[in-house]
């Protein structure tokens, strides 16, 4: 009887295939199709032409927003890395109190369970002209007038996005550091290496896959964000996802919005494959 076996084969192969078709090929296929259509009042009509992609290249507003989004995402990733790495390193190598370790790790992860919107709103109350940060700076006499420099600009977006996405940097780095056998750094110091040399030559290279994973996650998440520009961004804070939103929304130009989505997808895929390559190289280098 081949019945049960073929059923299980169908399930084993069928589920992932169905998944890929329904959740990837179908939606992306639709978006790709739309991206060749043309805008025609009152909506848009089927066509096959590259006008939308041409618009993205020729009209400077799209390149401008794309570059700004890349810049903001890179800043968020770098800032997250600078904050997350020392923290993860301290957790793994210096924090010997197990309950403190658990508590500190949870303190980073816990915000993930709080609504994204709420976390973004909190930064609004902290950074505002009459906000907590200004009140603090004024009460300590550092500034005499409330500053409007903290909210509704790119700085506020970077701070907010860093806060929101930093757990995605801490987790992979923590995991990578924890996998490093303790005897490696002992051997390194036995061979006469100073602690900083051990860090640069042993710990850092071995944690590269964690850094690459964290960088990819924070970068791609920031790259697709449109809540932060809406809540804490200023007049110069438009990001690419907001533009896509307005093309699908107010502008009623789904073809152009689709073309923009495809460009965004290509960039994200390029970053993911680059990160894969870095991780692979780091892993083979370790052997």
């Amino acid at each position: 009887m081949s019945g049960p076996r073929s059923l299980s084969t169908v399930l084993i192969l069928g589920i992932p295939i169905l998944w890929v078709v329904v959740f990837m090929l179908l939606p992306y296929g639709i978006i790709v199709t739309y991206s060749f259509w043309v805008k025609a009042y009152p909506t848009f009509k089927p066509a096959f032409q590259f006008g939308n992609y041409l618009t993205l290249v020729t009209d400077p507003q799209y390149v401008q927003v794309l570059l700004r989004t890349l810049k903001i995402s890179a800043l968020v990733s770098v800032l997250s890395l600078l904050l997350a790495y020392p923290f993860a390193w301290w957790l793994v190598f210096r924090c010997h109190n197990q309950s403190l370790k658990t508590w500190a790790y949870m303190a980073v992860i816990a915000p993930l369970w709080v609504s994204y919107l709420l976390r973004a709103y909190i930064w609004k109350t902290i950074l505002g002209t009459e906000g907590i940060l200004n009140s603090f700076l004024m009460s300590t006499g550092i500034i005499s007038e409330p500053s409007s420099l903290f909210l509704y600009n790119q700085f506020a977006m970077v701070v907010t996005l860093t806060y929101i996405f930093i757990p995605f940097m801490v987790m992979p780095i923590y995991t990578a550091l924890e996998r490093i056998p303790a005897n490696l750094s002992e051997a390194s110091s036995d061979l006469g290496m100073a602690p900083w040399q051990t860090f640069l030559k042993v710990t850092l290279p071995l944690s590269t896959p964690g850094i690459a994973a964290g960088f990819t996650l924070t970068f791609c998440l920031s790259f697709g964000d449109f809540i932060a520009p809406f809540l804490v961004g200023g007049p110069d804070g438009n990001l690419i996802a907001s533009v896509i939103q307005s093309q699908f929304g107010s502008a009623l130009n789904w073809p152009l919005g689709s073309a923009l989505s495809i460009v965004m997808l290509v960039i994200v895929l390029a970053i993911v494959s680059l990160s894969d390559r870095i991780e692979a190289r780091a892993n083979t280098g370790a052997h």
């Binding site: 799209y62 438009n238 502008a251 009623l252």
Partner: peptide, 18 residues
């Protein structure tokens, strides 16, 4: 705005893109 709708929204989007 009819056919001109796009010209207006496009200009406003360009302002925000700056």
């Amino acid at each position: 705005l009819g056919e001109r709708f796009e010209a207006y929204t496009n200009a406003w989007n360009a302002v925000k893109a700056q």
